[in-house]
Design a binder for these strands. Sequence first.
DNA 1: GCGGGGAAG
DNA 2: AATTCTTCCCCGC
Length: 677
Amino acid sequence: MDTCTDYRDKDTHTPEYNRDVADDRRRILARTRLRRQQTSIIIHFDCFYAAVLENETPKLRNLPLAVQQKQIVVTCNYEARRRGLYKLQPIKEAKRVCPEAVIVLGEDLTRFREASKKNYSFLASFSWNSKAERLGFDEVFMDVSDMIEYNVGLLNHNHLTNSFFCLARNDPTAGFAYDASRVAGHTYPPDLAPPDLAPPDLVIDSPVQSDERLRLHLTLASHLAKHLRQQLEAQNGYTCTVGISTNKLLSKLAGNLHKPDDQTTLWPPYTADDSERDNVTSFIDGHEVGKIPGIGFNIAQKLRAHVLQREAEIDAGLVHGGTKEGVLAGHVRKHPDMGPETLERILGGPGVSHGIGGKIWRLLNGCDDTEVGLARHVPKQISLEDSYLRLDTMEQVLKELRMLAESLLKRMHADLLEDNEEEEEEEEEEEHGEDIVAVRHVTAVTPTDTIGKRWLAYPKTIRLSTRPRPPQTIDGSTRNRSFARISKSAPMPNFVFSLKDDVGEISARLVSESLVPLFRRLHPEKSRWDLSLVNVAATNMVDAASEKSRGVGRDISKMFKRQDHVLKQWRVDDYESKISAMEINQVETRGHHGRQTILLREHSIRGSEDFPTSSQESSLRNDAKWESEHEDDDDDDDDNGGHAMVGDDKFVCELCGAAMPIYAMATHSRFHKHERG
DNA sequence: GCGGGGAAG
DNA sequence: AATTCTTCCCCGC
């Protein structure tokens, strides 16, 4: 075993020997508990926000450029940074430090959002497995394991210097030439031993396992990254900074080492007999705790307090990262008794995710097994907000709500609508005749002939949030605990999905029928409030059942088979007539057990007149009978007030057979009430 | 489902 | 200190 120290030439009876054995056992134990995955290759891209403006106006490129929102600089280019500007700097200070800076108003994020979408789609289009995840507007993770694996298989180990990277499995000519005997770009640590030629004939048992194979995989990934960077610049005009490693945490951190417009590969060994000597540990150890992604301000403060044995001070003078304490990840990791249990004790508490200790411990050790998310076409939520120096009259509030509502509508149209191509895809295959029957019914009701557009997803909920101005305590003790927002939500009214009505009309109606009632729920007093922020959001996004997704039909037939005790009360024609009146949406419940359920949801746009407005709905709220005490349910299946329990905490509606957690049932029964008229 | 909280750029 | 304008995820109920 290469992970075990060899003791053969040591005296087996000295205390040193015993200590070594103990240490080694502990290390091995620790390592097996948090085995670093070396099965994936992840690339992290960091594009650049301010570049959007530079590209629009190239002469800005060499000038110090800052983007202003309200009273602060939200971002700035490197020239501005060189002259002392920084993120979240007060605009006054920025002007004092660098009067010649060009300051651009950037409260409207449309252009940034569009650039972000364009760059993201471009990068994601290279992916084979669709694992391409956006983080904020300017970062993208890609899991390129499959591309790398495939291209390792293509290598001719006798001619590594003349290799060809294949970008498409079905087109051997798509790709680029490269030198597989050398890494592209920088590495950490910087000075590599003379070129590590891969051994000519290694047993290829994927996935990556040995350091040797990992080196080879990372080398290929570095060339892929370089190619993607070049393409992004050539095709879209954006440079980016890239990190290459085996997980999201490490690739993101590695990228920081050489910016802007460059790339860094975190080089093996990722594990070593002496845990201090592997590159991952030394790399992570050197980071200030708060710099580890996943360790936010609160957790960082608690960790600092623990190693310093006192509250960590927040140095106002050190806005640009870090505190004057300078507590490093390594300090925390090596602190006496440190480990997942200790961390759980320090960090855990009400509202904190269970297992936070283990999670932070893994981060401190460079371990991160979170998957790169699948590429997504539609957002999960759309929200807009504005902040104010003073907002304390209903008149102002109405004005703001109108603006926000109209912007929200426009965003929904921009981000959730798709051109309605009438391509009637032929029904290929299939072995289950019943699937196809179900699919046909769904297809028949999707809005087609409206205005040449169709909804890709429907937000089911509208939410209004405000941030009351923090109460000014005149006494010195500023225990301003609450800089929090408060929110209320309601069903998204159906009329917003109309494609024939005027946007202005719809948003006016949205204000009067949804947002104003929500505002009254948030702020029942006539006056007395002063808001510093208002936010409206369209949330609870449900994908529209698309003609293309055969998965819907499958799941329906699965539901028939699995839950016939519930569904037998339906005659088939009954079911089909209901189906034709509804669109079927697949809903992923992220409940405790992550089970998939199917909800049947009305959304026929033409029928929307009969449908309740949010104010009507909220007056129908009848939550009382669902009040808690579902704690100790016994599992007797059927006698549950008309709802069959299908296991754990899922219930099945006796009217439509939908399975759902108990919390969802109040709303669901309201749905049936309206359905009946 | 609802409302709050935390993390990220 | 928290500042902006978002997006996503998790918790307890």
